[in-house]
Amino acid sequence: MLDRNQIAQRIAQELQNGWYVNLGIGIPTLVANYIPEGIDVEFQSENGLLGMGPFPFEGEEDADLINAGKQTVTMMKGGSIFDSSMSFAMIRGQHVQLTVLGAMEVSDSGDIANWKIPGKMVKGMGGAMDLVASADNIIVAMSHTNRKGQSKLLRQCSLPLTGVKCVKKVVTNMAVLDITPNGFELLERAPGVSLEEIQAATEGRLIIDGDVPEMKL
């Protein structure tokens, strides 16, 4: 099974040269630590910056420079700052090529739920609904099952949706899967994880076509 950093590392392999990328809170944020050599990307944070850099050195934090997770960050040379309306114009207008975000549930038709558990947790959707409704390329980073061991890759989401038919790829601690018209297509297994284990942990339709290779990290 992959840990959080390895999930991020695997997702980083999807980055393409010249892409603008929006990383959600949690595992997605870690993707920035694993940009492959020779790949030049710029990170967008929906609170209004492009060209987000690493965390500041201790003592150099600036309260006026945070990311959408409200963490103190820095800017890369050539970065830019803008207001929330322009930020979402970039997102809605499809000028940002990739969105990576976490989820509580994903359905085998690409629906995603990640903002609300009725009666329990209501934090709000933040920018997630705008992001998933517009991005061409949406990768979900999450654990394959929840804390109770139940599958998070479902035939249909049970929680209130964030977006419909939008997720293209899911990278979990067990597998890499594409969303196809016929369900989750298993592309890669985490090292040491068997097809049977993935099948048992996947409630939605799972397509296994021949030998499925192990991920290379």
Binding site: P54, F55, P56, F57, A63, K70, T72
Partner: peptide, 12 residues
């Protein structure tokens, strides 16, 4: 006051 919600840094 300009409070910081998530003070994240990296070591020098």
């Amino acid at each position: 006051e300009k409070r910081i919600e998530q003070r994240t840094t990296r070591p020098k």
